[in-house]
Design a protein around this nucleic acid. Structure first.
Lengths: 203, 203, 203, 203
DNA sequence: TTTTAACCGAGACGGTACGTCTTGTCTTATA
DNA sequence: TATAAGACAAGACGTACCGTCTCGGTTAAAA
């Protein structure tokens, strides 16, 4: 039987108002410049109500992330059977998102949040940059012999996502053909520029 | 004919004291928690003297980076003729540095600085993660046919460095064999031990 | 016939616990720094239970006063037939009480309570500083012709008690012979030692 | 030669704005309900500027008192040669002031301030309730033999002022003839109701 | 016996104010 | 005129209490 402690229960209304206010202020003004007072004011909530449930603004952002209030639905790689094409499509999708400077700023803010809050880092990994969906696609590729058995799938994903993160951090603008080149970098060149017989190790 | 404006010249002593204080406080307390007042106090300098020459703390950090006050001499990839071995050695070197949690925190702080200051981002790219040295090694590899002509060298570097950045952000601990697997991911497996690296470590 | 409304009756246990906690906290930390939350916590009582029965902390203190939880039994003037001796003895008694700095602080706290709560002021008059007992003694003095008929008895008491209150407020330390000099001031010098008391102590 | 330390000097403008705001808020809302934030806001000043120079609101009020921003010029007793008449006139003056309930509340607030700040208590003694002027008048009375030599002057003043303080604390309304009765209580009856031969000690 | 009003403890809530910290600008005296 | 010192207005920080409301549970008169 459910053991319920005494006293009024936590207000879901307040919780949601706080998260929504956080997401709004985050998008509006970035992670720095995000203030507890501003959130409390926008949410119509006492500051104590925030501090009662979250230890710091990083935790607020992490929970927003978890609730999908900060980023659109995760980008999903298609599965057409052509690994390189699928990865390229996924990358192009993400790059298009980043190309909007508003989104780029938001992502950078998210990286800032991750630098000072481990939970945000974890959530970023999990829920933002594809995690399992990408992983599944690559596993399927091994199955289909598009990747050799034993290929370092996790590291391929890290390299791919990391390259994107690095570009956001350094504000490097997207250049044409970037998606293809990145895919080339991590899973080798596409079929129409195939086998050059050279000593380059087969992947 | 040196046109010298009147009045006291900029004090090099003050400049250095400020940069050293910045570097010290940065290492001590991280990018957040870095305060202008703290720097001024430690440097024995008026706050105005800082604001006169730097617009914000991001710029201070960027200049520290440029002066090599924040990070050790850049990591240089060896050139033994064996591309994979060289890259692996370089990676292992960097990973060993990151494995010291003090260094990891420092790097994360640097990423935080990069999120809010474009100059820091640029400098980080250039001076921290090797940039040209790595690039040179890869160009040599193309020359030596260890990489096929037209290989996306820049993207390979981005992927490699990005993976490191991503791991620092998400606080993923280094696992054994990581350097090999990452090299495998971006330039393919080592020829003499094709199965090496094995399956990726679970994350 | 006892008209009783429905529901549980007021808990005497809770009432006493609250008053005792109030008295304890009052003595411990003074009237300011007295908090409803602190009282509730010490009494093991919900805050609402306090607010249900008392409108404010002033009322709590007033009731403590009424119940004799804050001050020792009222100081009673003796009646030896010698008015001046009796008043001096009473005053010396009260002054000795005040001389303990803990008691002085407690009285000052009580004055603080009186400034913001009229009821406390009234109770202070009545139950603390003797009120009727002193009055009775002075009326007896008129009867015995130790005071002339028509002497302003109430004002004499006010002057006496007021002097004490004023000294507590201004933290003036008791000086030797003070009791005698005060009695001298309000009912004239003692006959058998007309010069007694000497000049006032410098302030 | 004046040894001046470096840095900007204390702003007299800010100091005055703060004291004026304090006096205004004090009169408006009383000692409790006086807030540092309210003062800072009304004075157009940062809170730190207040805390830099005053440790607490009690000190602010004490300084206002010293600057004469809270109470009118001290009440001065006349000197017509008739001690009782002069004291009665002074008392009537003060009682008339107290009779305005706004002034009464202000005085009560001042007493509240005195309970928690020793400096206020001291200033109250000195500058509010006549201090030296009353003292001087009584010393002249001894000189003129209106009071016997050795009369406890300081205690007479304490009794007189104390009675007023006590009445303010207990909110006892002024009754007709009060001034005369109080004077009677501390320096004996006036001449037109003289010597009754009784055993009441001569003063 | 059931209902129901009032009590109780606990504790969440929207607020206000606290005293501290930091920011970026301004002022003063010195070098 | 640049500097070290430091005062200033502004405003966010995280904490402490305020007085109200909401929970789940208990008590006892009324229905």
């Amino acid at each position: 039987m459910a053991e319920r402690r005494r006293g009024a229960a936590r207000s879901e209304t307040a919780r949601l108002a706080i998260l929504r206010a956080t997401a709004h202020q985050f998008a509006e003004r970035g992670y720095d410049h995000l203030t507890m007072e501003g959130i409390a004011a926008e949410a119509g909530v006492g500051k104590q109500t925030i501090y009662r449930w979250w230890p710091a603004k990083g935790a607020l952002v992490a929970e927003c992330l978890l609730e999908g209030l900060l980023l659109p639905d995760r980008f999903l790689p298609p599965d057409t059977g052509d690994l390189r094409a699928d990865l390229t499509a996924w990358l192009a999708d993400v790059l298009a998102f980043i190309d909007d400077s508003r989104n780029e700023a938001l992502l950078r803010s998210l990286l800032a949040a991750a630098t000072e809050n481990a939970e945000v880092g974890r959530r970023l990994d999990e829920s933002v940059f594809a995690g399992s969906a990408l992983m599944t696609r690559l596993e399927a590729a091994v199955e289909a012999s598009d990747l050799r058995p034993g290929a370092p799938i996790a590291e391929i994903i890290e390299a791919l996502v990391g390259a994107l993160v690095f570009r956001v951090l350094t504000r490097t603008p997207t250049s044409p053909g970037l998606a293809e080149r990145l895919v080339d970098a991590v899973v080798g060149p596409s079929a129409q520029a195939p086998r050059e017989g050279g000593p380059s190790a087969p992947r």
